[in-house]
Amino acid sequence: MNDFAWLYDWPQYIPDLLPGLWVAIAMTCVSCLFGYVLGFFLALLVEAPSKLVSYSALVVVELGRGIPILVLLFLFYQGLPQLGVLLAPYPAAVAALTFSAAGYSSEMIRAGLGAVPKGQSEAANSLSMSVVDTYRFIVIPQAARISIPPLVNLTIIIFQATSLATVITVPEIMQQAGIIGSATFEYMSVYTAAAVLYLCITIPGAALSGYLEERMGTPKQRSKKQAIKALLPAAGKLRTAEERQLTN
């Protein structure tokens, strides 16, 4: 047997792993969809005026960010049945990934919402726009420009994290690879094929994130002239501060 056979052998395992890829993609989509919606509402709650609401939301966020996904998987799959909640492997994995995605995304979304100048919602308020309309048309579209690139990155990380779900027998890529490997002993080839499948998603994903960051992150339209203009209100303040000194 040739030590280098795996170099050209691995592609033959791709077809057998494809069903696992679809499971991984489906888990990513569902977890991120639920996770980011949850993350959005957690972000709003963290900013709520009530301290109790705000701190409770922050605790949920920190749990989502702080507990490793592997631990969450075991908690949901093996821990919850002791409390009478029985989850099948797939829902348990989605729950764990969703929880983690919610925690991380809520901080990204909160950063985006926080970066929208206060004057924007004040202007909408002064025009009698409702709170919901203000978020929908004014705040969220502007926050999205800031939040979307990191959310794309997070989606890639969640996609990679679906591989952990093999430990609770979800039939994703790693589960399939393990089964084939133990039947053929061609571990090098099979896991190379698995790695290539992950890379097929993560590399274009990283490129997309980079592109979006460039397009959305930097305010390119902003000319030097406007940058100077932006400083002028500060100059106005200086003048009025002088007045104040003089009048006191």
Binding site: G119, E122, S126, L127
Partner: peptide
């Protein structure tokens, strides 16, 4: 509020 309109020092147009 429906009676009033407001103009700010920093314009606050919706940039998007």
């Amino acid at each position: 509020r429906n009676y009033t309109g407001m103009v700010f020092q920093s314009f606050n147009l919706f940039p998007h």
